[in-house]
Amino acid sequence: MSHFKHIAVLQSRAAPLARVGVIVLFASTGSAVFAQEVPVYDPDDLANCLSQSIVEPSQCIGVGADACFARSQGSNVAYGFCNGAERDDWDARLNATFQGLLETQATATAELRAFREDYPDLVAQMRAMQRQWIAYRDAACEWDYLQWGGGTGGGPALASCQMVLTAQQALFLKGWAQ
């Protein structure tokens, strides 16, 4: 596992500088002086890991945040930022897969209703499922957050929890879409 993480990190060095971090940097300071202090999330870290066919995709969860954190000074703020950035990365993947599934479900519903008019709306079912997932993610991460009893670790832990659960759901839906 760690072996592949190293590969992902090495490859990312050859890749163009990360977009997210750079945008944040210039937006907030307008100077490259603080480059080392701003954590940089490089979407290539995760993308490279996922593109390796011999790696089980769930092994890639956290790869982007780990690499981002390794490039930072190592603080709760950086930890929260890096996990938040990878969460957003997975969230975009989740949404893309979800939209594709909605189209599949719409087609399937139309086909099935040719046989039986009152066949349940599969699109509505899919949306209901996603709402249930959101309720689950929120309840699970709320529970996780409570463990910190109001300490400063709570916020970063929340981002990490959301990242992991979003990634798992993205991969779960991807399995359906194939």
């Binding site: 079912q125 209901a128 709402r131 689950y136 929120d138 529970w143």
Partner: peptide, 11 residues
């Protein structure tokens, strides 16, 4: 969390 999980699993 466990109740939400059951709803999520069933859906």
């Amino acid at each position: 969390m466990q109740l939400a999980w059951i709803g999520y699993r069933d859906a």
